[in-house]
């Protein structure tokens, strides 16, 4: 009988990523309502020492798969190893983070296991002993409440920045286990041959705690300078609407919305963004939304917690000065 919750943790360059703690925290909550345990699994090379922290967030057991070939994620190697570890542990629930890596890994692992998987969920609960997953569809224009049918483990990924983190308790120590697995080189059909690092040092929009975003109202690429300055001051990442990206003012990776990134920061400041339905769809799970726009009828104000109807080229620099004073 399938039992317990497995949280698959994620590391990059040997550092445990924040999403891993979010997933372990959520796994703990679900396991508690089932009266069962949490096992975290992490794959990497030489990550055991750092993986101890997964216990602080609620894992009872941490399984470490250590191999130089697992240092950088490839679906081939990771799915091959995880298939063995998941089958051995036979969990009722299998959770991953909906990071770029997690979404990819979860999809291929679910296919390998032949189970249903709910991608990029914003809420989980246990009903009648089973997992219920809630996820936005149509970029958040509707939400789907899903359950699983003759499908174990019940599998899902959790949207970054949405699941509350447990308070880490350094007094809690998980049982650390070295995983036994086989990994034949022949299964590895893709190879990472190079990594180009983004030198901006900014957190990716999907994981950013704060985002300052600009739209058509920025007038040109130069207009983003004031947004960059505000973002630097408050430690935010800079986003853009589709029209700004299509105009060539910002790169594709900055686009927020239905055909761009879906984001959930604590603070989203929309500047000169009218709020087309596709844009709103990509940012409406942000916790606090600020809109700065000259047009009082802009739809963005319907979603905003705080609205400023005025010229952003005056408001944004003034806001920066005010925040400097407060710091």
């Amino acid at each position: 009988m399938a039992q317990g919750v497995i949280a698959i943790a994620e590391q990059r360059d040997g550092e445990i990523r924040k999403i891993s703690y979010e997933v372990v925290s959520e796994a703990r909550r679900l396991a508690d309502s089932l009266g069962q345990g949490v096992t975290a699994i992490i794959l990497g090379a030489g990550v055991k020492e750092k993986a101890v922290t997964l216990g602080h967030y609620g894992a009872d057991k941490v399984v470490v798969a250590d191999d130089p070939r697992l240092q950088t994620y490839t679906p081939d190697a990771y799915v091959t190893v995880l298939e063995q570890l998941v089958k051995e542990n036979d969990p009722a629930i299998l959770l991953l983070g909906a990071s770029t890596q997690g979404k990819d890994l979860a999809a291929r692992l679910a296919a390998r296991l032949g189970v249903g998987m709910a991608q990029d969920c914003t809420q989980f609960s246990i009903e009648n002993g089973n997992l219920v997953s809630i996820r936005p569809i149509y970029a958040g224009k509707a939400y789907a409440k899903l359950t699983y049918q003759d499908s174990y483990p019940q599998m899902a990924t959790a949207r970054p920045n949405v699941m509350p983190l447990n308070k880490p308790d350094t007094g809690k120590s998980a049982q650390m286990v070295d995983a036994a697995f086989t990994l034949d080189d022949s299964v590895m059909k893709t190879k990472i041959v190079d990594i180009i690092r983004d030198e901006s040092g900014k957190v990716d929009l999907t994981e950013a705690d704060k985002i300052v975003s600009g739209g058509r109202g920025m007038k040109d690429a130069e207009g983003y300078k004031i947004l960059e300055e505000l973002a630097d001051l408050i430690g935010a990442s800079v986003g853009a609407s589709r029209s700004a990206v299509d105009a060539g003012w910002r790169p594709h990776k900055d686009q927020v919305g239905q055909t761009g990134k879906v984001v959930s920061p604590n603070l989203y400041i929309a500047c000169g963004i009218s709020g087309a339905i596709q844009h709103l769809a990509g940012m409406s799970t942000s916790k606090v939304i600020v809109a700065i726009n000259k047009d009082p009828d802009a739809p963005i104000f319907q979603k905003a917690d705080y609205g400023v109807v005025d010229d952003l080229f005056k408001v944004v620099p003034a806001l920066k000065e005010e925040l400097k004073k407060m710091a």
Binding site: P136, G140, Y143, L146, D305, V315
Partner: peptide
């Protein structure tokens, strides 16, 4: 394997505040 229990509209956000002020500086 995955079954829809129901679809719902997105959660409504509470009405926001429009910030008053004489000038952009005051509003900021």
């Amino acid at each position: 394997k995955l079954k829809v229990i129901e679809l719902t509209p997105p959660p409504q956000r509470a009405a926001g505040k429009i910030i008053d002020g004489e000038s952009p500086e005051q509003k900021a």
